[in-house]
Design a binder for these strands. Structure first.
Lengths: 348, 348
DNA sequence: TTGTATGCGTTATCAA
DNA sequence: TTGATAACGCATACAA
């Protein structure tokens, strides 16, 4: 019986290996890599040659442990399957890269408990700062972040005077603008298909935006039929059918996001309803789908890419501690397209 | 002048703090966390209480350094903005979570050099294994992975007898099946709008699939007009316009993916061409957009979610080293929808 | 079952 | 400009 040979090929080279190879101390190698100008050219060349020859690459975990800094920024988003986050995060990452930072993404599947877990995980991994979506989360989480002194930035939501630094837009007024437009077309019975509001302040704010406008227009809140449903095209369609079964039924159905709206659009077509002839439908976000839909969707345009990009530079500032950036409010605007029109003339 | 007070609040608790608090050694605390059954209930309770009270959370980097294992699996995808990857990766992550692994994603923006960099980064971070998209990459990368003995799995592509373990489908035959169908409808002049093939074997394979069928049908390769373009709806549209300017022009335009196809569809509409009356258009991937488009897109359905899920379990197996999983070939099938029909009768 | 002691690969402080 | 050397926070072999 032969003793088992350890399957180690040429072990992964370490700083020490490089140091030996170049006949210098590990400290010098480290300096060559991190602050090259602190070491004279001649030795630096020797060290770099050794690095090349051995194919050395620094061990990230060891570096993080010793330096207490990772140049990594974490982000917890609801899901990558939502195009708005995919797009924003891609821009976020690109901008981080330009500043020498790396992105660590995690997704919460829209579950508050999972989000908390992910936040703790990213923190344990040594993220220098975090990007979070929306303001809604337990005080415990905010306290945790504070005692760990991990800078955090809230995105996709801007709230006046919120304690937490944020970048985003005002969901209430953005949706209100759209609702005003709908009412301006003559609609008096509205439907609203909302994403689930339980732990989603953006969704709640959008509902509030519509309610505010109703009040403003002197309409009773009963003029609004509200359905909450999960994110998805098919769920949007089901909610729409439900809404059309109401009597009297809404002449305009506003949706909390474009995906729900596209579902509604499709359901309408399947039901043989003309949009906007029989019923108007609107969305929110202005993803590509909105323009491609038939009829094209009237929606609220949100600058997702810009938000991601600017979120990155704000976080970088916060980490470097130069100057703390102010919360940033971005503008949204309405994209008026075919899916919105006046109510049918025979509307009861 | 007062000396500056270090802004440290209650410092982050470490293993040692917990140990002190519970009156045990650090080793015992470590065991409580990693192999609880090795420590007797009574002390375990004491330790856990201390953990709670101090709000202790293990430092990931330190743990990785000591244990040489991270329970982390890395993935390098072209971009999160492509729905097929977003969807697959989401499933991938969910399945990893079930096995106690964490996902680290990076994106290469379809750039080979960037991909290599990301692979090195993830490796330096101690990823236990990697998920890569497609087979195409330099030997250097594969060698690197081998000497570091980092298990890697290729996804979104399956190649018979490829050295690298993979999960995916055969892009050549999947596209060939579709091309056969198109030719079966009577088309004799085809167009193909391909994604850029330079460092993308999936794209190359799809082109090859069409070419094979042409040969098979006794058609000259000149019967195929080929345009390569970047991923995107608008680029797809531009390529389509170019193709329609050809003379004689193709009666059917196959696209390397659904996004390009949707762009083509839109361009056709803008040009006043009827689909499939004047020209047929097909896609590949079967993303949601395909069914929503007008007319609905004939395309190749790929089980992205299943691929992500199974990729995760394969990688977990590879890391745990139980049994090495075989490469897996998944089936695709054609979704025949309205965008494909016979060529116009007046086709020259 | 628990404790002691060492090492993991870096960075950073302090001398030289 | 460079070199020793002490952390960093944890896991684990070995001893008790």
């Amino acid at each position: 019986m032969t003793s088992s040979i350890p399957p180690s090929g040429p072990a992964v080279p370490t700083l020490a290996d490089v140091a030996r190879h170049a006949n210098v101390s590990t400290a010098t190698v480290s300096r060559c890599l991190n602050s090259p100008d602190q070491v004279v050219l001649r030795t630096r060349e020797r060290v770099m040659k050794a690095v090349q020859e051995l194919g050395y690459a620094p061990n990230f975990n060891a570096r993080a442990l010793a330096a207490k800094r990772t140049n990594t920024i974490g982000a917890v988003i609801p899901t990558m399957e939502n195009a708005i986050f995919a797009r924003g995060i891609q821009a976020f990452q690109e901008e981080l890269g330009r500043h020498g930072f790396t992105l660590l993404v995690a997704s919460s599947s829209y579950q508050e408990a999972l989000e908390e877990e992910q936040i703790r995980t990213l923190t344990a991994r040594g993220a220098d700062a975090l990007l979070l979506i929306g303001h809604h989360r337990s005080k415990r989480v905010y306290d945790f972040l504070k005692t760990r002194s991990v800078p955090a930035l809230v995105a996709w939501a801007y709230a006046d005077g919120a304690e937490q630094r944020s970048i985003g837009f005002d969901n209430v007024s953005a949706m209100a603008d759209l609702a005003r437009l709908v009412i301006g077309q003559g609609h008096r019975r509205l439907g609203f298909i909302s994403a689930e509001t339980a732990s989603n302040d953006r969704a709640r704010d959008r509902v509030m935006g519509v309610r505010n406008v109703l009040a403003e227009a002197g309409l009773d809140q009963s003029a609004l039929a509200l359905i909450e449903t999960q994110y998805g095209i098919s769920t949007g369609g089901e909610a729409f059918r439900e809404m059309m079964a109401l009597s009297p039924r809404p002449t305009a159905v506003l949706c909390g996001n474009d995906v729900l709206a596209v579902g509604a659009l499709r359901a309408a077509k399947e039901m043989g309803l003309s949009v906007p002839g029989d019923v108007s439908i609107t969305g929110f976000d202005d993803i590509e789908l909105a323009m491609l839909a038939e009829p094209a969707l009237t929606t609220v345009h949100v600058p997702h890419r810009e938000m991601g990009r600017r979120a990155a530079s704000m976080l970088v500032q916060m980490v470097n501690g130069d100057t703390l950036p102010d919360s940033t409010r971005l503008d949204t605007d309405i994209r008026l397209r075919q899916s919105l029109g006046p109510p049918p003339s025979d509307a009861a």
